[in-house]
Each structure stands twice: as structure tokens, then as C-alpha cells.
Design a protein around this nucleic acid. Structure first.
Lengths: 155, 155
DNA sequence: CACTGATACATGCAAATGCATCTAGTTTGA
DNA sequence: TCAAACTAGATGCATTTGCATGTATCAGTG
């Protein structure tokens, strides 16, 4: 802990422990959430795409934009969208400004299902998070994770 | 925002936004980490099992204990361990106190590989986390995520 | 002790995933 | 202007995953 080498090593260790803790907490929470009844009808990853679309102001997103938000390979997302489309929950449209691109949007049925699952999901989240952290702590956790995400996203 | 209903609703929203942010930051960081060269030889999930074993004081863990730490179904973990065992990185042993149980431990080769990947991995983590958050912020993030994990783990 | 239910792990099988590659459209630069 | 390099997304195929179930062991009850 004294001298530059010690300080650097402990900075590295702190970063590693922080990430480890963030990761394990995510695992613990996700495990509970995905075992809930909300995701019997639709896997979490598929819901996540519906959710992402529902949050988007224009109502449409390019597949590669969605891919940034989700921990899936490009090909897996492509096929996940196939499944959603087959179930009539989303719709593929050619991107107007880029002939290669595909815009994804929710159908009415997709929007409804997202809302239905979302309501339950949000309740489950609150039941897990609210008893664990005060409102003040939640705001701080939100701030820190957003700061981390923004920094990592910008390389 | 006024009255009990508004307050409750905003508490629920805060919890949901906090989780959303935690989750997205995890996705962003994990995406970078797993694309690094450290995980060309061993998938992240398999490394994670080696890592978990390396951190354990007794050097041995039951499969169900490992399963708690990892976002994998029981059967998937069983087969992931098959692969690690086939590569000679871990060893299954019958649990002495429970005839149903299996203890997992690292082989020398497994320990070495974990250390080799771990060194690189820790460096990658530091490169992502250290520029994003101050040491003080990292400590706070560590504290909050650990508190969340502990609360969720205890139902 | 026998019996019922629960727990730990393994396995058959269908579904999901990722890598490599393909096609098509776009950008770059000589 | 046009060929080479690049990007968006789809697809073949092998690997990984999860659900349902099977087997063995354990814990509790009469």
C-alpha cells in the first residue's frame, strides 16, 4: 500500500473487486427475476427487445442499435427477432436511409404483451431492490452504473 | 409525486430504473471483456468456474454452490463441468458427507490457466473501470452492489 | 424401519447461441 | 468513376443451453 507499485496494484484490485461485485449482484437479481412467472410466456432476452423498442421515442430501432444494448451476438439477435416476428410481436421494415438496414418496431400485440409482462416485471424488481437499498442509495447506484456504462460505451 | 400513491409509484420507478442501469452497465462491460483476447482459449463462463474455485479457501466447492454464483441452469453447469473435466482443468470428487454431492476442485493445469487468464482479465477490467469512476466511487459501487446481492440472496 | 417427499446431480432431446461465411448495399480514395 | 474496403444483416452448421426427466441419496413421519 506504500509506494507507486503498491498503489497501482491496489487500484487494479479495487477495480476488479468492484466489477466482480457488480457482476455477482446482477446474477443474483437476474436469477430471481427470470424465475418469476412473468417470463413463462416470453424469455427474458426476448422481452428485453420488446422493452427496448417500447422505450424508444421513434418506436423504431435498427437491429445493430438493439444489439448494443443486449448481450447477444449479431446472428443470435437476428434469429431472436425471427422468433418475435413469427409470433407477430414485432415487424421488420427496410431502413429508408440505408438499404442494408432493418428497422424493428412493435406490433400492437407486441406492445400489449410488453406492457403486460412489464407491469409484473417492474413489481418484481421493486420487491427485490427496494428492501435492499434506501432511495438515496438507489439513486447513487443508478448514477454510478450510468457513469460506468457511458464511459465504457465511449471506448 | 404528491400523496401516498404517487410516492409508491415513484419508489417503484426508481427501483426499476436502478436495476435497468445496473443491468445495462453490466452488459456494456461484459461485452468488452469477453471480446478481449483473454477468452479465446476459454469461454468466460468456463473461466468463471475456474475463478470461483480459485477464490475458495478449501479449494473445493459443491456443484450447487457454484450454481448459485453463475447464471446457468443446473444441467448446463453439469455439462460445462464435463467440458472442463475433459480438458483436465478440474476434477470431480464424491462429497464425503453427502452421497449425492460432487466436489469440484482445480487441477494444477486448471489453476495455472486460471491465473494466466486472470492476470489479463484483471488488467482489462482495470482499463475499463478505473477511467470511469474514482476510487471513492468504486468503493461506493462495491458497497452498494454487495448490499444488494446480500439482500437478494437472503430472499 | 418403511414410506413419502425433497435434494443433488446426470442425461435425452429440442431449442438457442455463436462462429464463419454469404449477400447486398455503402463508403473511401486513387 | 470505379474498385477495394467496410458495414448491416441473414444463414449453415457445430456447440451450448435449458426443460423435463431419471437415478441415487437424504431427511422427516408414522
Amino acid at each position: 500500500m506504500s509506494g507507486p507499485t503498491g498503489a497501482a496494484s491496489s487500484a487494479v484490485r479495487l477495480a476488479a473487486e468492484t466489477w466482480e461485485s457488480l457482476f455477482r449482484s446482477q446474477v443474483a437479481v437476474m436469477r430471481k427475476l427470470q424465475s418469476g412467472p412473468a417470463f413463462k410466456t416470453l424469455p427474458v432476452k426476448e422481452y428485453d427487445v420488446l422493452f427496448t423498442l417500447s422505450r424508444c421515442p421513434s418506436g423504431q430501432l435498427r437491429l445493430n442499435e438493439i444489439n448494443d444494448k443486449v448481450l447477444l451476438s449479431q446472428s443470435s439477435l437476428s434469429r431472436l427477432v425471427d422468433r418475435l416476428e413469427k409470433r407477430g410481436l414485432v415487424e421488420r421494415t427496410a431502413a429508408p436511409d440505408d438499404g442494408r438496414g432493418v428497422l424493428l418496431s412493435l406490433t400492437d400485440s407486441g406492445r400489449e404483451l410488453q406492457k403486460a409482462i412489464g407491469r409484473e416485471h417492474v413489481r418484481d424488481i421493486a420487491h427485490l431492490v427496494a428492501p435492499a437499498l434506501t432511495a438515496e442509495e438507489q439513486r447513487e447506484l443508478l448514477r454510478l452504473t450510468e457513469k460506468l456504462r457511458a464511459s465504457v460505451a465511449g471506448h
